[in-house]
């Protein structure tokens, strides 16, 4: 039960963690209590979400959806997909430099996922055979390039201010 405390946001744990741990120690353990703590942790996370996080997630979802749609419609012209990966990767690298790799990976994931969906529904405009799934890994390059260009520009801007 006490391990479930780790599921709460850090700020919540700093404020209520000590007393909550004592309450959990005194509580009779069981699946119902564990589920209640899990639900409480989810609620605490939802309440701790800041507007900028919502904006970032919305941009990520919009970027992912656009990249997936472009890749789904793509024939042998992959430039629009690459351009979208570059463009959407850039702001995430600029604003979240320590997590640039994660956002690049999440944006990239739209490519193999939409490719897999195209395989499932056998939709391959202009391509007689679906490209091997692993080939989509090439899309990581523009995603990482876009994100780390953002990181580099942030670093240059902060270095020039110092």
């Amino acid at each position: 039960m006490r391990n479930l405390l780790r599921l709460y946001p850090r700020s919540w744990r700093e404020r209520y963690g000590g007393e909550f741990e004592l309450v959990l120690r005194a509580w009779t353990p069981g699946p119902r209590a564990a589920l209640d703590v899990l639900w409480g942790a989810l609620d605490a996370h939802l309440r701790s979400i800041r507007p900028e996080t919502v904006l970032r997630l919305a941009l990520l979802a919009a970027g992912g959806a656009l990249i997936a749609w472009l890749n789904y419609q793509a024939t042998d012209d992959v430039q629009p997909v690459a351009a979208a990966l570059l463009l959407f990767g850039f702001p995430f690298g600029l604003h979240r430099p320590t997590h640039a790799w994660l956002y690049a990976l999440l944006l990239f994931a739209a490519v193999p996922l939409s490719g897999a969906w195209a395989d499932v529904v056998s939709y391959h405009p202009g391509v007689p055979k679906p490209a091997p799934f692993y080939e989509s890994i090439v899309a990581l390059m523009p995603a990482l390039l876009g994100a780390y260009t953002g990181v580099a520009i942030r670093w240059i801007a902060s270095a020039s201010r110092a």
Partner: peptide, 11 residues
């Protein structure tokens, strides 16, 4: 009240 519900209300 479960512990998660209790501390959800308290917080």
């Amino acid at each position: 009240l479960g512990p998660g519900t209790l501390y959800g209300a308290i917080s």
